[in-house]
Protein backbone atom coordinates (compact mmCIF):
# COMPACT_ATOMS: atom_id res chain seq x y z
CA UNK A 1 0.00 0.00 0.00
CA UNK A 2 1.14 3.52 -0.75
CA UNK A 3 -0.70 6.68 0.20
CA UNK A 4 -1.86 8.80 -2.70
CA UNK A 5 -0.79 12.16 -1.21
CA UNK A 6 -1.62 14.00 -4.41
CA UNK A 7 -5.32 13.13 -4.28
CA UNK A 8 -5.59 13.09 -0.48
CA UNK A 9 -7.90 15.97 0.52
CA UNK A 10 -8.07 15.96 4.33
CA UNK A 11 -9.69 19.36 4.89
CA UNK A 12 -12.52 19.06 2.38
CA UNK A 13 -13.07 15.47 3.57
CA UNK A 14 -13.42 16.63 7.18
CA UNK A 15 -15.63 19.59 6.25
CA UNK A 16 -17.86 17.50 3.99
CA UNK A 17 -18.06 14.74 6.57
CA UNK A 18 -19.06 17.26 9.24
CA UNK A 19 -21.85 18.55 6.97
CA UNK A 20 -23.06 14.99 6.36
CA UNK A 21 -23.04 14.40 10.12
CA UNK A 22 -24.90 17.68 10.68
CA UNK A 23 -27.58 16.73 8.14
CA UNK A 24 -28.04 13.27 9.68
CA UNK A 25 -28.23 14.89 13.13
CA UNK A 26 -30.87 17.40 12.05
CA UNK A 27 -32.96 14.67 10.43
CA UNK A 28 -32.97 12.49 13.54
CA UNK A 29 -33.30 15.27 16.12
CA UNK A 30 -36.00 17.20 14.25
CA UNK A 31 -37.77 14.49 12.22
CA UNK A 32 -36.95 11.40 14.25
CA UNK A 33 -35.70 9.62 11.15
CA UNK A 34 -32.53 7.92 9.95
CA UNK A 35 -30.90 9.62 6.96
CA UNK A 36 -30.25 6.42 5.04
CA UNK A 37 -30.54 7.10 1.34
CA UNK A 38 -31.24 3.53 0.16
CA UNK A 39 -33.89 3.10 2.86
CA UNK A 40 -35.56 6.40 1.95
CA UNK A 41 -35.66 5.54 -1.76
CA UNK A 42 -36.87 2.00 -1.08
CA UNK A 43 -39.58 3.28 1.22
CA UNK A 44 -40.78 5.73 -1.45
CA UNK A 45 -40.85 2.93 -4.05
CA UNK A 46 -42.90 0.77 -1.70
CA UNK A 47 -45.13 3.71 -0.74
CA UNK A 48 -44.19 3.47 2.91
CA UNK A 49 -45.24 5.95 5.61
CA UNK A 50 -43.91 9.47 5.79
CA UNK A 51 -43.29 9.80 2.08
CA UNK A 52 -43.63 13.59 2.26
CA UNK A 53 -40.69 14.08 4.61
CA UNK A 54 -38.65 11.30 3.01
CA UNK A 55 -39.29 12.66 -0.48
CA UNK A 56 -38.36 16.17 0.59
CA UNK A 57 -35.07 15.00 2.11
CA UNK A 58 -34.22 13.23 -1.14
CA UNK A 59 -35.32 16.28 -3.13
CA UNK A 60 -32.87 18.34 -1.07
CA UNK A 61 -30.02 15.96 -1.94
CA UNK A 62 -31.13 15.96 -5.58
CA UNK A 63 -31.17 19.77 -5.81
CA UNK A 64 -27.92 20.28 -3.86
CA UNK A 65 -25.68 20.41 -6.98
CA UNK A 66 -28.00 22.93 -8.64
CA UNK A 67 -27.92 25.19 -5.56
CA UNK A 68 -24.14 24.71 -5.41
CA UNK A 69 -23.82 25.88 -9.00
CA UNK A 70 -25.53 29.15 -8.16
CA UNK A 71 -22.46 30.06 -6.10
CA UNK A 72 -19.51 28.16 -7.47
CA UNK A 73 -18.35 25.52 -9.91
CA UNK A 74 -19.12 21.91 -9.14
CA UNK A 75 -16.19 19.82 -7.91
CA UNK A 76 -14.76 17.19 -10.22
CA UNK A 77 -17.05 14.23 -10.95
CA UNK A 78 -15.20 11.56 -12.88
CA UNK A 79 -16.89 8.32 -13.97
CA UNK A 80 -14.78 5.90 -15.96
CA UNK A 81 -17.13 2.89 -15.94
CA UNK A 82 -18.83 1.72 -19.13
CA UNK A 83 -22.53 0.98 -19.52
CA UNK A 84 -22.29 -2.70 -18.62
CA UNK A 85 -20.34 -2.06 -15.42
CA UNK A 86 -22.75 0.73 -14.43
CA UNK A 87 -25.79 -1.47 -15.03
CA UNK A 88 -24.41 -4.41 -13.05
CA UNK A 89 -23.19 -2.10 -10.29
CA UNK A 90 -26.56 -0.34 -10.06
CA UNK A 91 -28.49 -3.63 -9.85
CA UNK A 92 -26.16 -4.97 -7.14
CA UNK A 93 -26.34 -1.73 -5.16
CA UNK A 94 -30.15 -1.67 -5.44
CA UNK A 95 -30.75 -5.28 -4.40
CA UNK A 96 -27.88 -5.37 -1.90
CA UNK A 97 -28.77 -2.23 0.03
CA UNK A 98 -32.39 -3.36 0.39
CA UNK A 99 -31.49 -6.86 1.61
CA UNK A 100 -28.77 -5.40 3.80
CA UNK A 101 -31.21 -2.72 5.04
CA UNK A 102 -28.85 0.16 4.45
CA UNK A 103 -25.89 1.71 2.69
CA UNK A 104 -23.00 4.03 3.43
CA UNK A 105 -25.29 6.65 4.95
CA UNK A 106 -27.77 4.51 6.90
CA UNK A 107 -25.29 1.97 8.26
CA UNK A 108 -21.98 3.75 7.79
CA UNK A 109 -22.88 7.14 9.26
CA UNK A 110 -26.17 6.88 11.19
CA UNK A 111 -25.78 3.27 12.33
CA UNK A 112 -22.21 3.65 13.55
CA UNK A 113 -23.15 6.93 15.27
CA UNK A 114 -25.72 5.09 17.37
CA UNK A 115 -23.34 2.16 17.97
CA UNK A 116 -25.58 -0.39 16.24
CA UNK A 117 -23.91 -3.82 16.04
CA UNK A 118 -25.91 -4.61 12.87
CA UNK A 119 -24.62 -1.46 11.19
CA UNK A 120 -21.05 -2.24 12.23
CA UNK A 121 -21.35 -5.73 10.70
CA UNK A 122 -22.94 -4.30 7.55
CA UNK A 123 -20.32 -1.56 7.18
CA UNK A 124 -17.45 -4.02 7.62
CA UNK A 125 -19.11 -6.31 5.05
CA UNK A 126 -19.62 -3.73 2.31
CA UNK A 127 -16.22 -2.13 2.89
CA UNK A 128 -14.51 -5.53 2.68
CA UNK A 129 -16.49 -6.45 -0.45
CA UNK A 130 -15.61 -3.08 -2.00
CA UNK A 131 -11.89 -3.48 -1.26
CA UNK A 132 -11.85 -7.02 -2.65
CA UNK A 133 -13.83 -6.05 -5.77
CA UNK A 134 -11.49 -3.18 -6.64
CA UNK A 135 -8.48 -5.42 -5.98
CA UNK A 136 -9.82 -8.12 -8.30
CA UNK A 137 -10.89 -5.70 -11.04
CA UNK A 138 -7.80 -3.48 -10.99
CA UNK A 139 -4.97 -5.74 -9.94
CA UNK A 140 -5.98 -9.26 -10.96
CA UNK A 141 -8.02 -8.57 -14.09
CA UNK A 142 -6.34 -5.28 -14.90
CA UNK A 143 -9.61 -3.58 -15.85
Amino acid sequence: MSIDWYNFTPWSALAGGALIGLAASLFVVMNGRVAGISGLIGSLLERGEGWGEKGLFLLGVLLAPLLWQLFCRLPEIQIDSGWLALTVAGLLVGVGTRYGAGCTSGHGVCGLSRLSPRSLAATLSFMAAGFVTVFVLRHLLGA
Binding site: Y99, G100, A101, S125, F126, A129
Partner: peptide, 14 residues
Amino acid sequence: LIGGSLLFGIGWGI
Protein backbone atom coordinates in the same frame (compact mmCIF):
# COMPACT_ATOMS: atom_id res chain seq x y z
CA LEU B 1 -27.86 -8.25 6.46
CA ILE B 2 -24.43 -9.67 5.66
CA GLY B 3 -25.30 -11.10 2.23
CA GLY B 4 -27.04 -7.92 1.13
CA SER B 5 -24.17 -5.76 2.36
CA LEU B 6 -21.65 -7.93 0.50
CA LEU B 7 -23.64 -7.57 -2.74
CA PHE B 8 -23.83 -3.83 -2.18
CA GLY B 9 -20.07 -3.69 -1.58
CA ILE B 10 -19.37 -5.52 -4.85
CA GLY B 11 -21.55 -3.05 -6.75
CA TRP B 12 -19.88 -0.15 -4.92
CA GLY B 13 -16.47 -1.51 -5.87
CA ILE B 14 -17.40 -1.84 -9.55
